[in-house]
Nucleic acid binder design. Structure first.
Lengths: 256, 256
DNA sequence: CCTTGAACCTCAAGTTACTTGAGGTTTTAT
DNA sequence: ATAAAACCTCAAGTAACTTGAGGTTCAAGG
């Protein structure tokens, strides 16, 4: 088919980069109907068809469905009607973009953690991702409890700082699992707790810690709710033991 | 079902925000199988199921398919194996993000154009989008013809400048369609041409224009190819007429 | 205890934008 | 003339749900 204005489906596919089955499909749904050789049934594409295909690809690029494209293709001019649909698409894309950025950050943190730790408890990973995924919910919660300044400060922390906090959490959860069962006053346990508190302090800074501590949380119930939906690093028992060790540590400090 | 550790599918759906049919579906494909009341067949979800669902959502957030998730769910720890797959996902997301950013820019330009012009010839829109969609191809073309510095300069132009160039193109194509048929030496026609050249000059700057003009393009064929794939603003005849008017204008200038 | 409406069940089919495959015909090159 | 390559149609598969029909179970009011 070497007339230079007519192409077989293979040549057309080659030229445009669109696979043959897809062209078949577009023909079938009436989106791009080339001429056909009446005896053999073979499709014959021409330059005009290239233009139409380019239009189709352009509209797909903007995010339209093939069905919408079928309707738009016949229009010779785009007016203010279109404007609205474009704006909608724009907003949808914006949202999608944010989603993707979040995901990329999350993945990055997980990658870094695995790289530096070798093996990581899957629950930690899940609670990490969960945290990022539901960042907006947490923010809302903070706003509700008038902790907007805390939120702002947290927002300023670099990704690096967050990663190093992730590492602390991994370490701690590993140690807890090792030390679990020992009496809470065991010096090893107390060292671990001390270490944990210090790291956390140095991340948040003293005044932020104070602010959080000062916040009297009325609706304890919804924290519980929230917690129930978060994959936890520790089993229920480990968590209890950890809390006891923490209590003990604070008491000791106060006695000094 | 008001035992506070067991939920009906409705309650569970409410709590997690996942629609009931989706939960049915997850049950069917074995992703999240809650207990069932053996006599009625009603599903009974508990807190553990919330955690599992959160894990599923987390992995979806990272971009895994439900099938992959099914396999990942049982793993208790994530090791370096996972690292590779995460990196892959990261790259995929990066690409997707770029795509979206491109689309957003395109839509923005189209919106602006429609806003300011009211009605726009659909071919203009298509050639605009086409241009953005195939930016990388054009870049490649420029690199091949050693026009990297031109490319760089173009990259520096602000979106605003590009939009105003879009407007020039619209205006010109409208005027061409109005004036088409008049002799090329008609003063109106020549004014239009002059105007067009000036606008184009002021966008590119004189030295860039010169560089482009100096480039001796060996492979004229592939320009032709490229052009055949671009929706054109003008019909073939209009384009010819425009080129003639342009020739005439340049001749006149040279005579002075 | 009965009824009634809401909530639940299963199973089948539809959705989007393709992709894959089987089985057969036409074209093209030698 | 023949064999390989390219093409055809029609059917079915894919992911991740959504929609719908037709029937059962639960919870509350009378």
């Amino acid at each position: 088919m070497n007339n230079n204005n007519k192409f077989s489906i293979g040549e057309f596919s080659e030229k445009t980069g669109i696979p043959i089955p897809t062209l078949h499909y577009y023909d079938e749904i009436g989106l791009l109907r080339p001429e056909k050789n009446p005896s053999s049934g073979h499709r014959i594409y021409n330059y005009q068809d290239i233009i139409i295909l380019q239009k189709i690809l352009s509209l797909k690029f903007l995010g339209y469905s093939l069905d919408e494209i079928k309707n738009l293709l016949n229009k010779t001019s785009f007016t203010v009607d279109l404007n609205e649909s474009l704006s909608l698409h724009f907003q949808a894309l914006e949202k999608e973009k944010k989603q993707i950025e979040q995901s990329m950050k999350s993945i990055n943190r997980v990658i870094r953690l695995i790289e530096e730790e070798g093996t990581v408890d899957s629950n930690l990973i899940f609670s990490l991702i969960h945290g990022m995924r539901t960042e907006h919910i947490q923010e809302e919660w903070m706003v509700r409890h008038k902790l907007t300044d805390v939120m702002e400060e947290l927002g300023k922390k670099s990704e690096e700082d967050k990663i190093s906090l992730d590492k602390t959490f991994t370490q701690v959860s590993k140690e807890v699992k090792q030390l679990y069962g020992k009496p809470v006053e065991d010096p090893k346990v107390q060292r671990m707790i001390k270490n944990y508190i210090e790291e956390f302090f140095s991340f948040l800074g003293e005044d932020l810690m104070q602010k959080i501590a000062d916040t009297n949380i009325e609706g304890e119930l919804d924290i519980q709710e929230l917690e129930n939906m978060t994959p936890s690093l520790l089993t229920e028992d480990e968590q209890k033991w950890f809390n006891q060790a923490m209590e003990y540590h604070i008491q000791q400090e106060e006695m000094e």
